[in-house]
Design a protein around this nucleic acid. Structure first.
Lengths: 182, 182
DNA sequence: GTCTATAATAGGATAGAC
DNA sequence: GTCTATCCTATTATAGAC
């Protein structure tokens, strides 16, 4: 049994959930402490400051995306169409749930004007996202075309998420995916 | 000659510029007062509160987009290709200048989780943006196809702007436009 | 490892002199 | 119409008891 009432993993999990919903700046320690059931001050036991917490939230989510979603792209025993379909389905769970959108995209638009310490983590995440889609597309077209198509796919998805959030309507994301064919 | 040292128009213009760069929440009255050359308290002479200022910034920019950019779509004496090219060129001035991106998209991702009073203004803006592109596309395809293509174009653009901001590289936007053909 | 208390600051907003 | 002074609140962060 654990020696602690609340584990760091539990705090990170619940914080991640809230930040996906509300964004970084808008989520205060007051919000987080309610969601996690601990005192605001207790965050400083596990994390240096809010920036440190957010960095770990981002790295955690990025690792989850790599292991649970992007990895599907490399299961070469499955047909490319099926791999793409599985990835779309899994992404939609994160992106269209309660209209919170994409935390990675959100943090870019929230902090890109400053020298945000988060951008490097997000760049790595999108690099791996692009590589995964490229690997699938490359079975049907040249490497260069696959690379270009992968980037356009992600841009279309991120734009559709923005429209979904603006109009509170998931069909923007559905229609965007419908246009992405192999 | 004006009776005032600083006009409301001047304050709105400079505030708009800073908010395009930094976003709504991240721009404080302290920032704005420096940029406008007036005391923080003086904003309350012209505006009820920060939300009121932001609403006028958004409405101002939206009106500018309508008059200077979207209107080009309806100059039916020009070929469709040329109208589209002019619109792209004008949009790029706003979107790729100093990597600040699209204020309208930014404010959606910044505030969509709450019941933001700004979303309605942005919805109207994007409605007119879609209508303008649809009008151009409709000269080459059905109304339904033109509507769908207009939405996809805007989503691609907004996604490309996000990538541009993430990697500080305008080629994402250039490449996105290159794929948008009539 | 968790709590209370509290510091320190920043940001939004108001009052009132001139 | 512009300024100084000030208030209020939210938020990040620290100190220290238990």
């Amino acid at each position: 049994m654990p020696a602690t009432k609340t584990s760091k993993e539990e705090i990170l999990r619940k914080s991640t959930h809230l930040i996906w919903e509300q964004g970084y700046k808008h989520t205060s320690f007051s919000d987080l402490s309610k969601a996690c059931g601990i005192q605001s001050a207790h965050f400083y036991y596990y994390f240096k400051d809010k920036e440190d917490l957010m960095t770990q939230v981002l790295e955690n989510s990025a690792e989850l995306f790599r292991q649970k979603i992007f990895s599907v792209a490399y299961r070469d025993e499955l047909p490319a169409e099926e791999r793409l379909a599985v990835i779309i389905k899994k992404l939609n769970v994160f992106y269209t749930k309660n209209y919170g959108g994409c935390m990675f995209g959100n943090v870019v638009l929230e902090t890109a004007h400053a020298d945000s310490p988060f951008l490097e983590v997000v760049r790595e995440l999108f690099k791996d996202f692009i590589a995964a889609l490229k690997h699938i597309y490359a079975s049907k077209m040249s490497e260069a075309e696959a690379q270009s198509k992968a980037i356009l796919t992600i841009q279309q998805l991120e734009g559709a998420i923005m429209m979904m959030r603006l109009y509170k309507d998931r069909s923007f994301v559905d229609n965007a995916w419908a246009k992405i064919t192999l």
